[in-house]
């Protein structure tokens, strides 16, 4: 089996310690949480670091899901399985149930964290698409204090984020508003594979019309893609198959997939549309069912 190049291992006991280590070690250090993206890359020697800072002991501090009236706050060390098992989170955002069942596999989900997923910034990563869909904001902490950035600001390109070398993503905030639901669909070649295309949708109704709608697509561009034009198209209109087909067409034409082993560009554009249509329809159905 392949093995990583030599590095020094350090363990942070709390957020302050982690930031202290990052400040001291600079860009030669990398944080490891679940490790399921980072360690394989290090084993294949696609990534090498002098120091690895283990932040799993921060789970006590940053492993939480807190529901307030206007938002849900999730600690960055919250593990996939904890997201999947959080009744209040799933009640507010069923998209997490949909997504978490198709992310990697259950054993990986025991270790992988929300923060780690977002910081990996893989364009195919599912929770990034979920957070884009839900208009999440990310709380980044450094020694100078905290700052809050939107998902659009957080991801700066494939595998690049707004988190500085001496900073730590500590929390994700999801705004809550009534009258909505959410859904996620992923097409993959096989369970556990990265998405060919995946799509999240969140939609809020006001009486018979759509008050707000958001879509987040993965694997169809350099970052997970939210398409604001879809919200503009849908707002104020009554949901219908035809309207969602139109939204799908907008998704197909607005994304920028490339042909690879997972599929042709044409197919991915088709999927962007098809999954947009499906997830929006699921949102409406869920609102009607009260879930």
């Amino acid at each position: 089996m392949q093995v990583p190049a030599p590095f020094e291992y350090a363990r942070a006991g709390n957020v302050a310690e982690a930031i202290g280590l990052l400040e001291r070690l600079g860009s030669s250090a990398k944080l490891v949480a679940g490790g399921h993206s980072l360690l394989p890359m290090m084993k294949l020697r696609l990534a090498n670091f002098e120091y690895l800072i283990d932040i799993n002991d921060l789970h006590g501090e940053l492993g939480y899901i807190t529901v307030a009236s206007d938002q849900i706050r999730i600690g960055a060390m919250t593990r996939h399985r904890e997201l999947l098992e959080s009744a209040p989170l799933l009640a507010a955002f069923p998209i997490f149930r949909d997504a978490e069942h198709v992310i990697a596999d259950p054993v990986v989900r025991n270790r992988g964290t929300l923060g780690g997923s977002l910081c990996q910034a893989d364009p195919s990563e599912d929770l990034s698409a979920v957070c884009t869909t839900l208009d999440a904001s990310c709380v980044i902490q450094g020694s100078g204090g905290q700052r809050v950035v939107s998902m659009a600001e957080f991801h700066r390109g494939p595998y690049e984020t707004a988190v500085g070398d001496d900073e730590l993503l500590i929390e994700i905030r999801l705004p809550l508003r009534a009258g909505g639901s959410s859904a996620y669909e992923k097409v993959e070649r096989r369970a556990g594979d990265w998405a060919v295309v995946s799509c999240g949708a969140a939609l809020w109704m006001d009486g018979g019309t759509i008050a707000e709608a958001r879509v987040g697509l993965a694997a169809v561009g350099p970052n997970t893609t939210g398409i604001p034009a879809i919200g503009e198209l849908l707002r104020g209109k009554a949901p219908s198959d035809e309207l969602f087909r139109e939204a799908g067409a907008l998704a197909s034409s607005s994304c920028s997939p490339v042909t690879d082993l997972r599929g042709t560009e044409e197919y991915k554009r088709h999927l962007a549309g098809e999954l947009t249509r499906r997830t929006l329809s699921t949102c409406v159905a869920r609102i009607k069912q009260g879930v």
Binding site: V187, V196, R262, G263, T264, E266, Y267, H270
Partner: peptide, 11 residues
């Protein structure tokens, strides 16, 4: 017969 190859065949 991956999803993409099946879809291409359908086209």
């Amino acid at each position: 017969l991956t999803p993409s190859r099946v879809w291409e065949a359908m086209q």
